[in-house]
Design a protein around this nucleic acid. Structure first.
Length: 255
DNA sequence: ATGGCACTCGCTGAGTGA
């Protein structure tokens, strides 16, 4: 069983990459963020033709999330019931006995801005909701673009980034508050090479220079963490023509 | 240094992202 997450930065533009990547990797579950499509524009037929069921929640221009699954997908929930929000950033579903939560955490723009406050409130409310979800669903995975680099080793140049949005102490504390629900960063269950990232700026040849951040994560509750045998970030899609600025993260679970 | 680039809406630029 392979679970994956990918911020595609427009599913309209990236659909060919997604379909090719599904064919190549055969992941069981793929969580997408930044689809940037209203639901009436979602490419259901193309995804179903690839052998995936899909749940999606979108809006025009911004945000938008989806879960693609090779297995039956049930009990779909859009957004956090504790956090009324116009922005479509969360979708959840139950697949093969696992509660899959796909999240696009707000960016926060700049430390101290209104959007930063929204981000911290959003994350605090996510924590509260997940605490309840975990009571009902002990096997839970939270996959998505967290817009938080949890530690300095997740940042290409920690000195250059110190205190800024995506790495600030309150954001990292919010990430740790999620971990404190007994959720484990699947990537850190394993020995990993240095300087592995999931996002690189489009500018300044950042990808070629590996000037990146690790901000896309898969957190697993104890029953799933116990089954996790690998977690990797697949850089291949970032090398394609017209790539997303993010690249997928994949966790493998033993059956 | 607030730039750089990509995406969207919908216009000839602005907003947002990370």
């Amino acid at each position: 069983m392979k679970l994956a997450s990918w911020n595609v930065n427009s599913l309209k533009v990236r659909l060919p990459h997604v379909l090719q990547w599904l064919a190549d990797t055969q992941v069981d579950v793929l969580c997408l963020q930044e689809t940037k499509l209203t639901d009436d524009k979602f490419p259901v037929a193309e995804i179903e033709a690839a052998g995936y069921q899909v749940a999606y929640s979108g809006q025009k221009t911004y945000n938008g999330v989806a879960i693609l699954s090779r297995h039956p997908l049930a009990n779909e929930v859009k957004n956090n019931p504790l956090f009324p929000d116009e922005q479509q950033r969360i979708i959840a579903a139950t697949i093969e006995g696992m509660r899959i939560v796909c999240a696009y955490v707000p960016n926060g723009q700049t430390v101290g801005s209104d959007k930063y406050a929204y981000k911290l409130n959003w994350l605090a409310s996510l924590r509260d909701w997940l605490a309840a979800e975990l009571q009902a669903h002990p096997s839970l995975a939270l996959l998505g673009d967290y817009n938080v680099a949890p530690a300095d080793r997740d940042v290409h140049d920690p000195a250059a980034w110190v205190g800024s949005v995506l790495v600030s102490e309150p954001e990292r504390a919010a990430f740790q508050a999620l971990c404190a629900l007994n959720l484990t960063d699947a990537f850190r269950l394993f020995e990993q090479p240095d300087k592995v990232f999931s996002w690189w700026d489009y500018r300044q040849m950042a990808f070629r220079r590996n000037m990146g951040l690790r901000i896309d994560h898969i957190l697993l509750s104890p029953p799933l963490a116990a089954r996790c045998t690998a977690c990797i970030i697949d850089k291949a899609p970032r090398k394609l023509e017209q790539p997303s600025d993010h690249t997928p993260v994949i966790a493998t679970l033993a059956s």
